[in-house]
Design a binder for these strands. Structure first.
Lengths: 242, 242
DNA sequence: AAACGCTTTTTTGTATGCAAAATGAAGTGA
DNA sequence: TCACTTCATTTTGCATACAAAAAAGCGTTT
């Protein structure tokens, strides 16, 4: 997402006394945004965790100012909730919210699929096929984490093929929410196999450039994912809806 | 969106020396977010305007800190762009970006229309009908600003009827972009009439609860809106695509 | 022991200070 | 005239300071 442009040593002015300048090209509050987002998405900061500014700033090695700016940014993304005069918490993972997000994601992915069928080059399709087979391999070996990795990449590649950066951005934002739930999921082999079969069908539809079919496949795929997440959410928690 | 809870004078402690406390229940950086967003959406801060922190903070009557937090928030919404070490600018209104946004908005509104056909109560429909007739009246009198007002309200009400807060939130964010273009638009009577006719059809579809039809109507409606915006964007500017 | 008032501590929200980077204005030489 | 330095000014990015609000103790009373 971010290709840091590092000034070449040769072209850099010699007045540069600071050695670290080769490393910290990025702005502090931007790295803090990414770090904090990762902590939340990876589940290290669990939903509803209070974000203590002093502690977090220390943990991330900055002062409170850039941290607060990062928190505001992520609040707009919806990953954290602001409580006036009481700071911020990691956005809760309510089943109702998940349901809403999946409905929207379904529409967005369907749109992306339709666009991808029109715009994808043969090279794009070849790349997706490659990712698909990697995914199949990890599925066969039961390597869940790696499976998820390629699964995500395929969906992201679909978005890229759609050629609509705005669509991709909105997708990423909502997807971040959903990814948090993944770490709770206890995927049954049966459901897992089904999801893989759905991916087979999706790839076939893309190859045939059957946009209408791909749309419905994606919508169904998302609906099934939702069911899985809901099950995972229902088991370990007391009941987060409120 | 924000219903400020004002503490009743009677329950307020008498140690309170500050008279303004009755007003500023809301957090400063939150009001700054709203103020800044308004300035951008209303076009007072034109696209590509540089946001000078010192000047803006003074204008909004705060220090730079809450302003910077607001800027980060709106950057995540996409209304401002962050330029590392060079501050922030109001997000440019590129035709390409508009096109992308309208495609996504089309999908979101179509989804909302479909959901609304299932979920809207008779009272909801009555309210939309009311807004619709207000809109017709302003259209007949050629009152563009008022027309837009009710037009917006109808679309927002559709979103509400869909009963998906996440959908509504994403919609609002993207819609803010589009609203900025409105002030540039020079609506021809012909296009205006057409848009009104489309609204007639949409209302009819909702009444019949014909979700499929409403979806296509909304998609077409958005596509037509895009054409209008593109024309408006093409005329007054040098050529913003880059 | 639960409910309350009170004080102390912690935490948040905002303003200010300071250093680094960017911008702009002369000035110099080709 | 134009390019290129150099230096002063402005502006941004981050850290810190301070005030107000919330939370946590802690006796006291019932």
């Amino acid at each position: 997402m971010s290709t840091a442009t590092i000034s070449t040593p040769l072209s850099a002015p010699l007045t540069n006394t600071n050695v670290t300048s080769l490393v910290d090209r990025r702005l502090l509050h931007e790295t803090v945004i990414d770090q904090l987002r990762d902590l939340i998405v990876q589940g290290e900061l669990a939903p509803e965790t209070k974000l203590n500014e002093r502690v977090l700033a220390e943990k991330l090695g900055t002062s409170r100012t850039p941290l607060r700016e990062a928190i505001k940014f992520l609040a707009s993304e919806g990953l954290v909730e602001l409580l006036p005069n009481r700071g911020a918490v990691v956005a809760p993972l309510k089943p109702g919210k998940m349901k809403e997000v999946f409905v929207v994601l379904g529409a967005l992915e369907a749109l992306a699929g339709d666009l991808a069928c029109r715009n994808a080059t043969e090279a794009d399709i070849a790349e997706i096929r490659g990712l698909h087979y990697h995914m199949l391999a990890h599925h066969a070996r039961g390597e869940l984490a790696q499976y998820f990795r390629y699964n995500q990449q395929i969906h992201i590649k679909f978005m890229e093929c759609a050629g609509n950066a705005t669509l991709a951005q909105v997708y990423r934002g909502l997807n971040a929410h959903v990814k948090r739930a993944r770490y709770l999921a206890n995927l049954s082999r049966e459901r897992w196999d089904k999801a893989v079969q759905e991916h087979e069908d999706m790839l076939a539809a893309l190859v045939k450039r059957d946009g209408a079919r791909l749309q419905t496949l994606l919508r169904d795929h998302l609906a099934n994912k939702l069911v899985m997440v809901m099950e995972a959410l229902a088991i370990p928690r007391v009941a987060a809806e409120r």
